[in-house]
Design a protein around this nucleic acid. Structure first.
Length: 569
RNA sequence: CGGGGAGUGGCCUAGUCUGGCUAAGGCGCCUGUUUUGGGAACAGGAGAUCGGGAGUUCGAAUCUCCCCUCCCCGACCA
């Protein structure tokens, strides 16, 4: 490709509304432009990178036996009603009507459609299968952000495994796990697999692939010593045991005028570790009390996972007063109405002599024994872990890092196959519901994640594997015939060798060419000018190190070919 | 949806509080001259209904009201 013919609108200043590094650089480098919130136009440079990422994903999927499909982006309402997700997806699904008034949804994922195709898999002999596509997903995100990291319209590789039993699913899940690690390695991303919540997808288990970055939206718990990694939505830790002193036979009510917080109560003599923090929540319309230890934080995702609730929010002060008879600051789970579900965090299990609100403003109880005094529906994991707590595996103090979710794999089980009535007959002629897995990786998000983690003060530093071009021949003086001839010859030779080469044949000054080449992050630059050409010399610059070496003109083609070939993954 | 911030040529900004001439500067773009190994200099030029609508006023980018859009922080996800 010739730069003089390429549309690369580079900018000196990043748009004022860009904050994330990847967002700034992808716009400045002329890779993309925003159309509106969460929707980006891919310019030629951006699309090249996007398609290289897609190709790597495709390679690895094919490598584990995946078969590529292409499914519609627009789905009938009935399909999503069958799985129950027409309702549960809520506002996140874009919905529209056709001219006859029939409702359709824009696909945000494709379990339903693939499961409906799976009804034509009738025999165990055709299992297992891995089906995938790279398709546009539409999600009405409440808040698109950080350029390509969170958008409303994006290409995703989604794959689905079909098996007869859990053992088969495990095998396909492991294959995907390995394939994903290879993908991230080829993208030069340091992705850590972590235990994750399965969220709206449902299913038995899931692993997220997380790349540490301040631009991320998740917090990942990481043990510095062992291999324990988990999303805070799932992470646990080992707590020091607390020995309670023997308390009274009955909870004792005592006056606490003006005391509304854990801290104030602590100053009044009740250690936070001996307090019960009662959070009044509304789960799908029902009042529920979630109780954690005074010094702990409730993790909403854990509450959601523990209950399977779809819509979850804190109760308003009015609702709280209506159902409990007191205002926040004086609430508790002792002696509440029987129809109110009380979920208690494991950390409070077996504890005695605790302090909690009495559901009467300015009054608390002390001497509360959880099992004796609280109508506990279930003990569940509700608390969010904190930095420095002990790793559940090896007891080393844990750390928490911000991370981007680059991929997510799920063991779905039979939910969708059941909904679509997808089953096979086994060797004994018995009907077996197909067991599915689902595996997603966002193409544009990974492109942005690489940009986020591969840059310096001059611009982007793409790995060779997904760089828009592998080499740029920078011609210092386009009207010097010897220089231009040598550059053209090298350009032809590299192209013939299958190198993705760009020749900067623009009539521009050296500084402009250098700056642009560095901004867009091309891994190798061959600088050719009259000064070196007369001596048969050119320069080769490595973008990542910015080291420049002189190379004989006669050797440059082979040098570049071998370096690029070596650096490809 | 709650909270915070912002909309001025393609891009970055000043001007707004305290209303007052043809809305200013930089980058980029076009033409010419001189330049030419790290974002050139000079000269000339094109390009803006100041997010939209309504209002106040002799006069509105500036004040008032309504609406739209974008960004950031929280609840959701590849």
């Amino acid at each position: 490709m010739r730069w003089s013919n390429l549309f690369v609108p580079t900018l000196r200043d990043a748009p004022g509304d860009a904050e994330a590094i990847s967002h700034k650089l992808l716009v400045r480098g002329g890779f993309m432009r925003q159309l509106h919130a969460g929707h980006y136009s891919m310019l030629p440079l951006g699309w090249r990178v996007h398609e290289k990422v897609a190709k790597i994903v495709r390679d690895e999927m094919n490598d584990i036996g995946g078969q590529e499909f292409l499914l519609p982006a627009m789905h009938p309402k009935s399909l999503w009603e069958a799985s129950g997700r027409w309702a549960t997806m809520g506002d996140e699904m874009f919905r529209l009507e056709d001219r006859s008034g029939a409702e359709v949804g824009l696909g945000m994922t494709h379990e339903e459609v693939f499961a409906s195709l799976a009804t034509e898999v009738n025999s165990y002999k055709t299992l297992p299968q891995i089906w995938y596509q790279i398709q546009w997903k539409f999600r009405d995100e409440p808040r698109p952000k950080a350029g390509l990291l969170r958008v409303r319209e994006f290409a995703m590789k989604d794959s689905y495994s079909l098996d007869m039993d859990a053992a088969g699913l495990d095998a396909n899940f492991d294959k995907h796990h390995a394939a994903y690690l290879r993908i991230f390695e080829r993208l030069d991303l340091d992705a850590m697999p972590v235990e994750a919540s399965s969220g709206a997808m449902g299913g038995a288990g899931s692993i997220e692939f997380m790349v540490a970055s301040p631009a991320g939206e998740d917090d990942v718990v990481r043990c510095p010593k062992c291999d324990y990694r988990a999303n805070v939505e799932r992470a646990t830790s080992t707590l020091d045991p607390i020995a309670d002193e023997t308390g009274p036979e009955q909870p004792e009510k005592f006056a606490t005028p003006g005391i509304r917080t854990i801290k104030a109560l602590e100053e009044a003599g009740a250690p936070a570790t001996s307090q019960m923090k009662s959070m009044i929540m509304v789960l799908d319309g029902d009042i529920t009390i979630a109780v954690v230890r005074g010094d702990h934080q409730l993790n909403m995702q854990k509450l959601q996972d523990a209950t399977g609730a779809i819509d979850i929010r804190p109760a308003t002060p009015e609702e709280t007063f209506e159902h409990l008879g007191a205002h926040p600051g004086s609430l508790g789970a002792v002696g509440v109405r029987e129809d109110i579900t009380i979920l208690v965090d494991h950390a409070l299990e077996g504890r005695t002599n605790l302090t909690t609100g009495a559901n009467e403003d300015d009054w608390h109880y002390r001497g509360v024994d959880v099992s004796r005094d609280v109508n506990v529906a279930r003990y569940v994991d509700l608390r969010e872990v904190s930095v420095g707590e002990a790793c559940p595996k090896c007891q080393t103090p844990i750390e928490i890092v911000r991370a981007i979710e680059a991929g997510h794999i799920f063991k779905l089980g039979t939910k969708y196959a059941e909904a679509m009535n997808a089953f096979v007959l086994d060797a004994d002629g018995e009907k077996r519901t197909i067991v599915m897995g689902s595996y997603g990786i966002g193409i544009g998000r990974n492109m942005a994640t690489v940009a986020e983690t591969h840059n310096d003060d001059k611009g982007l530093v793409w790995p060779v594997s997904i760089a828009p071009f592998e080499v740029c021949i920078t011609v210092m003086k386009i009207d010097d015939a010897d220089t231009m001839n040598a550059a053209e010859a090298l350009y032809s030779e590299l192209r013939a060798a299958g190198i993705d080469v760009l020749i900067d044949d623009r009539d521009a000054r050296a500084g402009v060419k250098f700056a642009d080449c560095e901004l867009i992050g091309i891994p190798y630059r061959v600088t050719m000018g009259p000064r070196g050409i007369v001596n048969g010399q050119v320069e080769l610059t490595d973008r990542s190190t910015m080291d420049t070496v002189d190379v004989a003109l006669s050797d440059i083609a082979q040098t570049v070919i071998s370096q690029v070939t070596e650096a490809r993954r």
